[in-house]
Amino acid sequence: DGDRLIAVDETGDVLSGDRILAICARQLQKIGRLTHNTVVSTVMSNIGLGEALQALGIRHVQAQVGDRYVMQEMQTTGAVLGGEDSGHMIFAAHQTTGDGILSAIKLIEAMVAERAPLSRLKEIMQVFPQVLINVPVKAKPRIEDVPRVIQAIREVEQKLGDKGRVLVRYSGTETLCRVMVEGPDQETIQTYGSDISDAIKAAIG
C-alpha cells in the first residue's frame, strides 16, 4: 500500500529501516527540525540504532511494535520522526502515517545535503547481527510466569552482557512466541536463540 520504503545503495546493499531512520534523524537535527531532539522506533529496532542516536546526542524512545504505537509515542514525546526497521517511517511535520514516497524524498534530501552516496551515509550505524525465531505455542501465559523460559533468557543475557540483547514476546495475531536475539556474531546468536526457543517449546509449545 505504499507506506514503506526499501532503499538499495549503489553497491547493491539493502539499507534497513533503522539505518534510514538514523540518516534522516541526523539530517533533521542538522537543520534544526528534529523537535525535542527525539526519535521513536520500536522494541524490535536493532541496537545499533540506539548507539547511533546516542552518539548524535539524540533521545531514543522505543514503542511497541506497530506504526500506531510509534505514532502514539511520537504524540506523547512531541517527536517529529519515528519508524520501524521494516521501512515504515513517520514524518509528523507532513503526515501522521507512513508514506513511502515522502520517506524516499527525505532520504534523497539527506543525500543531497551531505553530498554523499547511500553507501557512505549508511556508515552512521553499525547493524548488529540479529536472529528472529517464531515458536508455535499452545498457550500464552506471562513469560515471567514460565520459569524454564525465564531461566533460558537470563542465561543468554548473562552471556551477552552489554554486547547484545534478548527480546521474547507473543505475536498479537498468531499463536506464536517470537524470540529475537542480537549480538556480536550470527553463529553465536543463532545458538542462543535456539536455546531459548527450545525452552519455550518444552514449556508451552
Rank of each mutant, 00 (worst) to 15 (best):
I143H: 01
L15V: 09
L34T: 04
D162C: 10
M180V: 04
I133D: 05
A139H: 06
R165A: 07
K163L: 13
R178Q: 02
V156E: 00
S41Y: 09
L167P: 06
D67A: 06
A55N: 14
D3F: 10
K159M: 08
V181R: 01
A203W: 06
A113Y: 09
T76Q: 13
G205H: 04
R33S: 09
R154I: 00
I58H: 11
G66D: 11
E157K: 15
Y170G: 01
Q95N: 15
S119K: 03
Q95K: 15
D145E: 14
A116I: 08
A52K: 08
A92W: 13
G87R: 12
D195H: 13
P147E: 03
I133G: 03
E155A: 13
I31L: 10
A7L: 05
I105D: 07
G183V: 02
L107E: 04
I143W: 11
I105A: 13
L53C: 12
T11E: 10
V146K: 00
H60D: 03
D195W: 14
L132V: 13
S119M: 05
G161M: 07
T11D: 14
V137K: 00
M89S: 04
V179Q: 01
H36P: 00
L49G: 11
Q62A: 13
L5M: 12
G12I: 09
Q126I: 15
Q72I: 02
E144S: 12
R178N: 01
R115V: 03
E155V: 09
S45F: 14
E84C: 09
V40G: 08
D195C: 00
T96I: 14
A92P: 12
D67C: 07
E123T: 12
S171Y: 11
D9G: 10
P141A: 00
S41P: 07
K122C: 02
S197P: 02
A116H: 10
T42E: 08
A22C: 09
A79L: 02
